[in-house]
Design a protein around this nucleic acid. Structure first.
Lengths: 136, 136
DNA sequence: TTCAACTTTGTACCGGTTACAAAATTGAAA
DNA sequence: TTTCAATTTTGTAACCGGTACAAAGTTGAA
């Protein structure tokens, strides 16, 4: 697997310690974390870490295409390491977010009603497998 | 067409002046406005209008199923008068939001990977028809 | 007419995010 | 190796969408 430093360099980003740790976290934990969750997870390791750094770094990574910024169903941005095409499902009961391997890539780079589609975000909402079990 | 007052009564909502004007605005202007846009549009007409009233009213309407609250691509909620199933497209250049008449209703009330789907939100992003013309 | 229930309003506050300037770090030229 | 400009990080203050709350206003049925 490519090293974090390699990935950063490929995207013209200087591999500072903070940037390496943040990207490492996002690659390891696929939990669609918020900026604050990332900050909380790393501040023990980097006691001087500033939230502004986390926000700046996530912005940079997103602009350079390393991360995807998700507007899921609440009023906060969540981030994920860019990977195979998938869609999101959020459980209305336990609030867990699942990745589903359904692709809508037939949209991308195509025209729909004359509009050129560059990104697609499919967000499903309902009751997840596990919560369905508990209900019955 | 049903009157605004009828619609409110059908949903067990007392038709106050503020509520009528807010719903009227949303039914007339299909621009997916934010709470603040609605406030700005109505405050000349109702000089004592409070933003809290707009927020309260939108919350009530959404709970009663008159409106849909959309988490589109930014960090602010946008509202629309509930109508035929459709998906959203946002132009990355002019920021206009279009409704597209594509239905994904085959999802609803079905199981996907064992999860029960109750809502689906499909948000496309790209360059709209009009901006494509200007580009060339 | 009365009065309780409901609605609206204004203020203060909250939490996620950004602006900004100072401090720290880096890395390439000398 | 030293220097110094460019980059990165940090902390504080501010911004902005949204909510809590209590007071004031309005409504409608007894």
């Amino acid at each position: 697997m490519k090293s974090i430093i390699e990935i950063l360099k490929e995207h013209d980003i200087a591999p500072s310690m903070q940037r390496v740790k943040i990207l490492e976290y996002l690659r390891n934990y696929k939990t669609h974390p918020t900026a604050d969750m990332i900050y909380q997870a790393l501040v023990d390791d980097i006691p001087t870490l500033s939230k502004t750094t986390v926000y700046n770094t996530l912005k940079t990574f997103t602009e350079k295409g390393i991360l995807l910024a998700l507007s899921l169903f609440e009023n906060e941005v969540r981030y994920e390491y860019n990977k195979d095409p998938h869609i999101h499902f959020k459980c209305m009961k336990c609030n867990k977010i699942y990745d589903l391997n359904h692709s809508f890539d037939h949209y991308n780079d195509n025209l729909v009603d004359g509009h050129k589609i560059l990104e697609h975000h499919v967000n499903l909402k309902g009751i997840c497998k596990d919560c369905l079990k508990v209900e019955n």
